[in-house]
Simulated assay, not measured.
Amino acid sequence: MNNVASRCRVNGHAMRALRRLSGKTQLDLARMGGVTHSYISRLERGERLGCTHEVLERLAAALGVPISALISAGSS
């Protein structure tokens, strides 16, 4: 699969809000999603706009939400 086509634009504000509602820290989410704390922090701040579909699936599962809850409008 083409790496560009498989990247999703993340809504960092929504991810932060959902993470906080779930009672998880950035470190908790990073561990559950198989990424670094820095990666989560950058996604939430909008410094890293996208991630692979596989990472997005893991983050959504860790938060107990559908992937659509984490994707910005207009994402491919």
Rank of each mutant, 00 (worst) to 15 (best):
M1T: 07
M1K: 10
M1D: 00
M1S: 12
N2H: 10
N2W: 01
N3M: 10
V4F: 08
V4Q: 02
V4G: 02
S6F: 06
S6G: 06
S6Y: 04
S6T: 11
R7G: 08
R7H: 10
R7Y: 04
C8A: 09
C8N: 01
C8G: 00
R9T: 12
R9N: 09
R9D: 00
N11I: 00
G12D: 03
G12E: 01
H13E: 08
H13A: 09
H13Y: 00
A14Y: 00
A17Q: 04
L18W: 03
L18S: 05
L18P: 09
L18N: 04
L18E: 02
L18Y: 03
R19H: 06
R19M: 09
R20H: 12
L21W: 01
L21V: 05
S22K: 15
G23Y: 05
G23L: 06
K24G: 06
T25Q: 10
T25R: 03
T25C: 02
Q26Y: 04
Q26L: 14
Q26W: 03
L27Q: 03
D28I: 00
D28C: 00
L29K: 12
A30C: 12
R31P: 01
R31F: 03
M32D: 10
M32L: 15
G33H: 00
G33F: 00
G34K: 03
V35R: 11
V35K: 11
T36P: 08
T36A: 12
T36Q: 15
T36I: 03
T36E: 12
H37A: 00
H37F: 07
S38T: 10
S38A: 13
S38N: 07
Y39M: 08
Y39W: 06
Y39D: 01
S41L: 05
S41D: 12
R42Y: 08
L43N: 05
L43M: 11
E44M: 02
E44V: 06
R45V: 07
R45N: 02
R45I: 05
R45K: 14
R45F: 01
G46L: 07
E47T: 04
R48W: 06
R48Y: 00
R48G: 02
R48C: 12
L49V: 01
G50Y: 04
G50V: 07
G50W: 03
C51P: 12
T52E: 11
T52A: 02
T52K: 04
T52M: 12
H53G: 14
H53W: 05
E54C: 00
E54S: 15
E54Y: 04
V55Y: 09
L56I: 10
E57F: 01
E57N: 14
R58E: 09
L59P: 09
L59D: 01
A60K: 14
A60M: 14
A60H: 14
A61H: 13
A61D: 15
A62F: 13
A62V: 14
A62H: 15
L63P: 09
L63I: 13
G64K: 14
G64V: 15
V65H: 10
P66F: 02
P66L: 02
I67Q: 15
I67A: 15
I67W: 02
I71H: 04
I71N: 04
I71Y: 04
I71W: 02
I71P: 05
S72K: 15
A73L: 10
A73N: 11
A73V: 06
A73Q: 12
G74P: 00
S75V: 01
S75Q: 07
S76W: 09
S76M: 11
